[in-house]
Nucleic acid binder design. Structure first.
Length: 106
DNA sequence: CGTGTGACTCGGT
DNA sequence: GACCGAGCCACAC
C-alpha cells in the first residue's frame, strides 16, 4: 500500500489536528507549540495545505491566531460552512465566538 | 547544498 | 479594525 509523501513533521501535525474535538477550533501556532516548535506555525500551515489526509484530519478546525479563518484548500467559503455545521459561528472570514470554542490542547 | 514559497505570528501605523 | 513589514519553519527543486 503506497504511502504518500508524508514527512514526519506533517504527520505530527495531522495527529495533533485530529485531537481537536468537534465544535472546537485551534490555531496553527497552537499546534506548532504543541509539537514543541512554537515558531513553526508556517510549517504547520504548509502541512495542512498539503493535506493528503483531508477526510481523516479536521483541518477546517484550524484557523489563524485571533480567530481569522486563514485558508483552505477547497476554498475559504467551504471552510466557513463546515465550521458552521459543527456549531462554530463565523463572520467576514472570522470566528465570532472564538474565545468560547478555542482549543489549546490542554 | 542554496533558493523560493506558503492555509503563520507579532508589532507598529 | 485593517494593512504592512520583518522574522521563523519545513519542504520541494
Amino acid at each position: 500500500m503506497p504511502r504518500k509523501d508524508i514527512t514526519p513533521f506533517s504527520q505530527a501535525v495531522y495527529e495533533a489536528t485530529r485531537l481537536i474535538p468537534l465544535g472546537r477550533v485551534s490555531t496553527y501556532g497552537t499546534i506548532a507549540k504543541f509539537l514543541g516548535k512554537p515558531r513553526a506555525a508556517r510549517a504547520v500551515g504548509n502541512a495542512l495545505h498539503n493535506n493528503p489526509l483531508a477526510p481523516q484530519v479536521p483541518c477546517h478546525r484550524v484557523v489563524m491566531s485571533g480567530g481569522h479563518l486563514g485558508g483552505f484548500a477547497e476554498g475559504i467559503k467551504k471552510k466557513k460552512k463546515l465550521l458552521e455545521t459543527e456549531g462554530v459561528i463565523c463572520k467576514s472570514g472570522r470566528v465570532v465566538n472564538w474565545s468560547e470554542i478555542f482549543f489549546s490542547f490542554k
